[in-house]
């Protein structure tokens, strides 16, 4: 297997040489995110896993066509979202990514003038490994991400974890930049609220 921080170019060279290790590195880097995004689009985890699997086959068959005009992650996730959206149409689902479940910002943190009712806690002691309420903080984060509405989860994974450009995320999910920003904010806020609830 290649180094965990191997560049796109190193991975592409490995794939061209039929190096299993290069594929393993690529798979480990992206598969969990791919399943999350496809599951969000399809509203079904098993279907999300199937689409991720199909996408890997397509990636291997077509990697020679990759021209480097986007990141490798962006290219893979474009194939994934196209396949997921095709399945949405095939299965007669009416909406690829339902924007009606964006959720609302919690209003009860502020008074009528928009000031904090209570001072937020200091989080100096929060680390991924710290155990609170019987589990590591990072496990609370994972649970909060899984609990997000699908549209928020997809944006958080693509922008906050895979670090795609804002424009790429909008094109993949067929949403406006304004909606993308709202979804990202609400997703991060929900994760922050979950950590806060677990630790204070």
């Amino acid at each position: 297997m290649l180094d965990q921080d191997a560049s796109d170019a190193e991975i592409l060279r490995g794939l061209a040489a039929d190096d299993r290790g290069a594929f393993e590195t690529l798979y480990r880097r992206h598969n969990a995110s791919m399943v999350r995004v496809a599951s969000a689009i399809l509203r079904n985890h098993a279907s999300g896993e199937e689409v991720a699997h199909e996408t890997w086959i397509a990636v291997l068959r077509n990697v020679g066509k990759f021209e480097g005009r986007s990141s490798l992650a962006g290219w893979i996730l474009t194939i994934l979202s196209n396949r997921a959206k095709t399945r949405v149409k095939r299965d007669g689902l009416s909406v690829a990514l339902d924007m009606s479940d964006q959720g609302q910002d919690a209003d009860d943190a502020f008074d009528g003038r928009g000031n904090w009712k209570n001072l937020p806690e200091l989080w100096d002691e929060i680390t991924p490994e710290r155990v609170v309420a019987g589990r590591q903080v990072i496990d609370h984060v994972a649970e909060a991400i899984e609990a997000l509405p699908p549209a928020q989860r997809a944006v958080l994974v693509l922008r906050g974890q895979q670090e795609l450009e804002a424009q790429e995320v909008c094109e993949l999910l067929e949403i406006t930049e304004g909606n993308m920003r709202i979804l990202l904010h609400r997703a991060r806020r929900a994760v922050r609220d979950a950590i806060d609830a677990a630790t204070t």
């Binding site: 995110s33 991924p128 990072i138 984060v141 991400i145 974890q161």
Partner: peptide, 8 residues
């Protein structure tokens, strides 16, 4: 933490 979660 969200970034770290993906790496985990």
């Amino acid at each position: 933490l969200i970034t770290t979660e993906a790496k985990g």
